[in-house]
């Protein structure tokens, strides 16, 4: 029996090993939400990010001069915009007080630097140099000056992994800024698409898309992207709306984590991204 097994092993060992390892890999796919696996990954990427942060800091230093010039220019533009917005803010506050609406609170911003990027077709993720010690929690939105970048997925003491908009596991409720139409947006591996938008709804190329207040992850309006195309699906009553994100995921280096304290009540009512199994 042993001899037969040895002959069999000698003849097919490469295939046996391949099959065993494929089975192990496929089994691993089902352990993504396992708490122990999550803990191990948090520890592993935390250690690795410590090293990559040194490298990315070195790379960033070379870019700082150009960035400073760009920021100075942007600063001037923003100063003009702020003046205008300040006026709107005053008017807004007065109007809200007239109709007795609850005002939105201030959200703390946690600055972070991207220390590594994992850019694959369907599962883009970024590693940031801030973690639980800086107050980062899974589920917090990540933004840049351009708009929404992604959501914090996993956190270690000093580092965190975010899933960008270009990640299939992230589905977000967004709305058309002009026509106020809500829809679910997701990454299909090729484009960001707003799915199941009825054909009769008013959506046009050039419309700005922002996060919807219906979202349990990002409850404040943050720019997401711009409508570039309507895929007129021939059958059915729904359309697909293709959205180009404002954020360039290849070029971004610095982000801000929106320290939103999630409403537990709301979380229990809705199944948000982070709780999704």
């Amino acid at each position: 029996m042993r001899r037969i097994f040895l002959i069999f092993w000698e003849s097919f060992k490469e295939y046996i090993v391949l099959v065993v390892l494929i089975v192990v890999s496929l089994t691993a796919l089902s352990f993504n939400q396992n708490k122990a696996v999550k803990n191990v990954r948090a520890a592993a990427f935390g250690t690795f990010a410590l090293v990559t942060s040194v490298v990315s800091d070195f790379i960033n230093v070379a870019k700082i001069k150009n960035e400073n010039e760009h920021l100075a220019e942007m600063n001037a533009e923003l100063m003009l915009q702020i003046n205008q917005l300040r006026q709107y803010g005053i008017e807004n506050r007065e109007l809200k007080s007239l109709i007795n609406l609850k005002d939105s609170t201030d959200y703390p911003l946690i600055p972070a630097t991207i220390v590594s990027k994992s850019l694959t077709g369907a599962q883009n993720s970024l590693t940031l140099n801030v973690g639980t010690n800086a107050g980062v929690r899974p589920g917090m939105p990540v933004i840049t000056d351009k708009g929404l970048t992604g959501i914090v997925f996993s956190v270690s003491d000093d580092y965190s992994i975010i899933r960008t908009l270009k990640n299939q596991n992230l589905k977000l409720t967004v709305k058309n800024e002009r026509s106020r139409i809500n829809a679910v947006m997701k990454w299909n591996g090729e484009y960001l698409v707003m799915i199941n938008v009825p054909k009769t709804y008013d959506v046009q190329p050039g419309d700005r898309i922002i996060t919807s207040e219906l979202s349990s992850i990002v409850p404040i309006p943050i720019p997401v992207g711009v409508v570039v195309k309507l895929n007129n699906v021939e059958r059915g009553i729904f359309n697909e709306v293709i959205v180009k994100p404002f954020v360039d995921f290849i070029r971004i280096e610095h982000v801000f984590i929106l320290g939103i304290v999630e409403s537990r009540q709301k979380n229990n009512l809705e199944l948000n991204f982070y709780n999704r199994k």
Binding site: N32, S118, I161
Partner: peptide, 14 residues
């Protein structure tokens, strides 16, 4: 790769 980069666990392994 899967453990360190946070990609879908098992996908790169396979």
């Amino acid at each position: 790769f899967d453990v360190i980069t946070g990609s879908f666990f098992g996908s790169t392994m396979l």
